[in-house]
């Protein structure tokens, strides 16, 4: 087996694994961080597929911006929930 193919297999397996963990981890904050990890692995995948344009966009948008959006929403919703529980 060539080195490239074994790297591809490893990358594909870690993509599936991080995607699965992002959906199944009980704690939501960890799930969001795993999703950012998934985005970075996607960046590597695009580089392996000889698509540097998509890799650049995915690094900035898929991993960075989407992750920031999700974490920000999580933080705000968590703060609201804590405030609502304190009011009770």
């Amino acid at each position: 087996m060539s080195l490239g193919l074994s790297f591809d297999l490893l990358l594909g397996a870690s993509l599936l694994w991080s995607g699965w963990r992002a959906l199944s981890t009980p704690r939501l904050d960890r799930a969001l961080v795993l999703f950012i990890v998934f985005g970075l692995l996607m960046t590597l995948t695009w580089a392996r597929l000889a698509a540097p344009d998509i890799a650049l966009a995915e690094a900035a948008i898929g991993a960075g911006l989407t992750g920031a959006l999700l974490l920000d929403a999580y933080g705000v919703l968590q703060a609201k929930r804590l405030a609502a529980e304190a009011r009770k």
Partner: peptide, 28 residues
Amino acid sequence: LFACVGAGLFVMGGSGVLLLKHLLRRIL
């Protein structure tokens, strides 16, 4: 190879949208 991985991710995400209750997880 990555097309097959993509098919796996698509189906995983699809079953997640169907099964998960929390909306942030559904967006994931």
